[in-house]
Deep mutational scan, measured.
Amino acid sequence: MQIFVKGLTGKTTTLEVEPSDTIENVKAKIQDKTGLPPDQQRLIFAGKQLEDGRTLSDYNIQKESTLHIVWR
């Protein structure tokens, strides 16, 4: 499925993911596209910070959802 990651600059990155992907895995995909290391990424969805060990489905993140990224 496709999801979007929007940064503070307003730039949006598209990712191809599975609902079973962990947040850690998603951060690795973001690094592949942007070069930003996972330890500098904070992902937010529906006002919650996403924890590395959880999956996208744990947070009810579905296709075409938009996550927000904040740099540490």
Results as ranks from 00 to 15, higher is better:
residue 12 T to S: 09
residue 41 Q to S: 08
residue 17 V to K: 00
residue 32 D to L: 11
residue 56 L to W: 01
residue 4 F to A: 04
residue 44 I to Q: 07
residue 38 P to G: 10
residue 18 E to S: 15
residue 33 K to D: 05
residue 35 G to E: 03
residue 8 L to E: 10
residue 55 T to F: 06
residue 26 V to A: 02
residue 15 L to G: 00
residue 18 E to H: 14
residue 17 V to T: 03
residue 43 L to G: 00
residue 34 T to H: 07
residue 40 Q to C: 07
residue 22 T to V: 04
residue 29 K to V: 04
residue 51 E to P: 02
residue 51 E to R: 07
residue 26 V to K: 00
residue 11 K to S: 10
residue 58 D to Q: 07
residue 21 D to C: 04
residue 7 G to H: 13
residue 25 N to K: 14
residue 20 S to F: 11
residue 48 K to L: 14
residue 54 R to G: 05
residue 68 H to T: 14
residue 57 S to I: 08
residue 56 L to C: 03
residue 63 K to P: 14
residue 13 T to Q: 09
residue 7 G to T: 14
residue 7 G to E: 12
residue 57 S to K: 11
residue 26 V to G: 00
residue 3 I to Y: 01
residue 18 E to C: 07
residue 37 P to N: 10
residue 18 E to W: 12
residue 37 P to F: 10
residue 65 S to K: 03
residue 53 G to N: 11
residue 23 I to E: 00
residue 15 L to M: 05
residue 58 D to V: 03
residue 47 G to S: 05
residue 19 P to G: 09
residue 40 Q to D: 07
residue 37 P to W: 10
residue 6 K to L: 14
residue 27 K to Q: 02
residue 27 K to L: 07
residue 45 F to A: 03
residue 26 V to E: 00
residue 53 G to V: 07
residue 45 F to D: 01
residue 36 L to N: 04
residue 24 E to D: 09
residue 65 S to L: 03
residue 16 E to K: 09
residue 61 I to R: 00
residue 24 E to M: 14
residue 49 Q to R: 09
residue 50 L to M: 06
residue 69 I to K: 01
residue 15 L to H: 03
residue 41 Q to Y: 15
residue 17 V to H: 02
residue 66 T to V: 14
residue 50 L to H: 00
residue 66 T to L: 12
residue 24 E to I: 10
residue 54 R to K: 15
residue 21 D to Q: 04
residue 28 A to H: 13
residue 64 E to Q: 08
residue 62 Q to P: 07
residue 47 G to E: 05
residue 68 H to C: 07
residue 44 I to S: 11
residue 11 K to Q: 14
residue 21 D to M: 10
residue 9 T to E: 12
residue 10 G to S: 08
residue 35 G to Y: 03
residue 19 P to M: 08
residue 22 T to K: 09
residue 34 T to R: 03
residue 57 S to A: 14
residue 8 L to R: 10
residue 65 S to Q: 08
residue 51 E to I: 08
residue 23 I to K: 00
residue 40 Q to I: 08
residue 42 R to M: 15
residue 46 A to D: 13
residue 65 S to N: 11
residue 70 V to A: 10
residue 29 K to S: 03
residue 40 Q to N: 09
residue 62 Q to S: 11
residue 57 S to N: 11
residue 26 V to C: 03
residue 35 G to P: 02
residue 27 K to M: 06
residue 66 T to N: 04
residue 53 G to S: 11
residue 54 R to N: 09
residue 72 R to L: 15
residue 64 E to G: 14
residue 59 Y to K: 00
residue 64 E to C: 07
residue 5 V to T: 03
residue 60 N to C: 05
residue 63 K to M: 11
residue 46 A to E: 15
residue 45 F to Y: 13
residue 35 G to N: 05
residue 70 V to M: 10
residue 53 G to K: 13
residue 57 S to D: 09
residue 20 S to I: 06
residue 66 T to R: 04
residue 57 S to C: 04
residue 29 K to I: 07
residue 19 P to E: 06
residue 51 E to T: 06
residue 30 I to D: 00
residue 21 D to P: 00
residue 52 D to M: 05
residue 39 D to F: 10
residue 47 G to R: 04
residue 55 T to C: 05
residue 17 V to D: 00
residue 42 R to T: 15
residue 28 A to I: 13
residue 55 T to A: 05
residue 21 D to I: 04
residue 11 K to H: 13
residue 57 S to Q: 12
residue 13 T to L: 13
residue 31 Q to W: 15
residue 23 I to R: 00
residue 19 P to K: 06
